[in-house]
Design a protein around this nucleic acid. Structure first.
Lengths: 114, 114
DNA sequence: GTTGTATTCAACCGAAAGGTTGATCAAGGG
DNA sequence: CCCTTGATCAACCTTTCGGTTGAATACAAC
């Protein structure tokens, strides 16, 4: 896990979620697919701006897009979110293990990580 | 969970982890506290730059600092990492619930989230 | 007090992010 | 074949980010 080839993808994912607007988009998509226009409405920004956000999320593979006539609904890629929790938990668990003095667990988890 | 008052903090946390250098710092700190100089060494950037990164992480409360004479060791605040996984899992689980058609779980999780 | 070591502050710089407006493209409906 | 709708492309602007160098601070050792 946390393979070298996924490094850039992990980077894009964290980068993507750094923006609150994009997190809100993720939140919205968790309730089902939506088009750019639908996503743009609750925000006070233009569709073009939303479209850019989608592209960022798409490059991070956090969302995918299908085609439905002229609409292009955006879908959440929940699986990719797991890569983030995996990265975080990696270090969260190490620290917790240290607090408890579980050296065996610690040594297993803490070798050559990013 | 995901209280309104934590909103800014969550923002800073994602923002902080968006930078690969700062993620590497987190990784290093998971193996124990370190000073700015120690953290700067493996990188090819100046200590001043690292100091700035630490400040960003500190404002996100992902790390804390103590004082040891003129040294100011940085410690990982593993507890804060949980806030991130909590946010992510919130939506990851919603999607997984949808795939399984677990509407009850879905309705419970998906009301007025950020 | 002077020197030395660890860290931070301040000013600056180039690159990238997030936003806008205006033009353009794709797909259907009349 | 227009014309509308949904979405993207392109150019531009402003702010923020990550980095630098150089001066300043804090603390301890001598």
């Amino acid at each position: 896990m946390t393979d070298r080839s996924d490094e850039a993808l992990l980077d894009r994912a964290f980068m993507a979620l750094a923006d609150p607007a994009r997190r809100r988009i993720i939140a919205r998509l968790s309730r089902g697919p939506a088009t750019v226009n639908e996503l743009a409405e609750p925000f006070e920004i233009t569709k073009q701006a939303v479209s850019k956000h989608i592209q960022v999320l798409e490059q991070a593979e956090l969302v995918t897009r299908t085609r439905d006539a002229q609409r292009r609904p955006v879908h959440l890629n929940a699986a990719r979110l797991e890569a983030l929790t995996a990265w975080i938990d990696q270090y969260r668990l190490v620290r917790e293990a240290q607090y408890r003095g579980l050296d065996a667990v610690l040594n297993h988890l803490s070798k050559d990580k990013t």
